[in-house]
């Protein structure tokens, strides 16, 4: 059994307590308009194109003949980094591309690369073990994130079980959009849930993420009832979920979860994920707003704190 990963990050200091290793599993059932990791959405391995690394078809161009479907083509021109001239960058015709990765194999600068790596539990654990001294010094551990890691339930369970067998703290970063049976299985091996709360209104939730929220809210309640520990994470998206009313509703819901919630984190929207959309030749993120102001974030923080919640800004 293998898991499909799109990234693994050491010295992860924002995804749970202490110094952590965050394992990002690929594939997600949600399609959040503000998503800053679009490469995490699709389950299969995908071709990415990092334009700044491309050295141009004039001196390279190896990807062009390597492509069996003719999807890789000469694209726009750009001023060369060195010297006076222009270089022709390559583009990918996504209607023809089947993500076979033949172009990435020959690309010397790795402007074209495949995103998505298959690892067994043992292979993943080898990486996990490497950082054990850092978990120990800091009270850290492993965070499994996504995409939506609950979408690879058997692998996730095996990975968490292996971590717990070695005494490593585990956190699961999730949208909560999964069948309760999946969560129930991993619950005994999960020390902490980093649990997203995007909107309390189901219709608006569906508009922003592509799915309704009933199951998500229900799962949160069940985790709390089952004695699970949670940190609630709210991405603060301007004109979507940042109003006083939105936060009143969210705050009430979190308060009702009681002692299960250790902390609530606000994640202010930012547009820096845009480059990752470009790498997939996709339009996004589809949020037409400036990042929220510091004053607004502080106001929302105070609002939740007034309800007795412990709040941090990510």
């Amino acid at each position: 059994m293998k898991g499909k990963f799109y990234d693994i990050q050491g010295f992860s200091v924002h995804d749970g307590p202490g110094i952590r290793l965050t394992l990002f599993l690929k594939g997600c059932p949600l399609r959040c308009l503000w998503c800053h990791s679009p490469e995490s959405q699709a389950f299969p391995t995908q071709l990415n194109r990092m334009e700044v690394k491309c050295t141009g078809t004039e001196t390279c161009g190896r990807c062009l003949p390597a492509c069996p479907t003719g999807a890789v083509k000469p694209g726009r021109k750009k001023k060369a980094l060195a010297g006076e001239g222009e270089i022709t960058l390559v583009r990918v015709d996504r209607t023809l591309c089947n993500d076979c990765g033949k172009c990435a194999e020959v690309c010397p600068s790795k402007a074209l690369y495949l995103c998505g790596t298959d690892l067994s539990v043992d292979e993943a654990m080898e990486k996990v073990r490497r950082d054990k001294p850092f978990y120990d010094s800091s009270g850290g551990g492993v965070t499994v994130s996504g995409g939506e890691c609950l979408c690879q339930p058997d692998f996730l369970l095996a990975l968490l079980t292996a971590c717990k067998a070695e005494g490593i703290h585990t956190a699961v970063d999730t949208t909560g959009y999964a069948d309760w049976s999946v969560i129930e299985r991993i619950l005994p091996y999960t020390d902490l849930f980093l649990y997203d709360l995007k909107h309390m209104d189901s219709a608006k939730h569906a508009r922003g993420t592509g799915v309704p929220n009933e199951r998500i809210l229900e799962n949160a309640r069940k985790i709390a009832a089952a004695g699970g520990k949670m940190q609630i994470r709210i991405p603060v998206i301007p004109m979507y979920n940042d109003s006083t009313e939105d936060f009143d509703a969210a705050g009430r819901f979190i308060s009702d979860l009681g002692a299960a919630v250790e902390m609530t984190q606000l994640l202010p929207y930012h547009s820096l994920g845009a480059i990752k959309w470009e790498r997939l030749d996709r339009e996004g993120p589809r949020v037409e707003a400036a990042p929220p102001t510091d004053q607004l974030i502080q106001a929302r923080k105070s609002q939740l704190e007034a309800l007795g919640l412990c709040v941090t800004i990510h």
């Binding site: 994640l267 480059i275 470009e278």
Partner: peptide, 16 residues
Amino acid sequence: RIAGFSAYFVELQAEG
């Protein structure tokens, strides 16, 4: 480090 992920600075677009 950008909230949510880390990146090589030189690989970010100019506005980023």
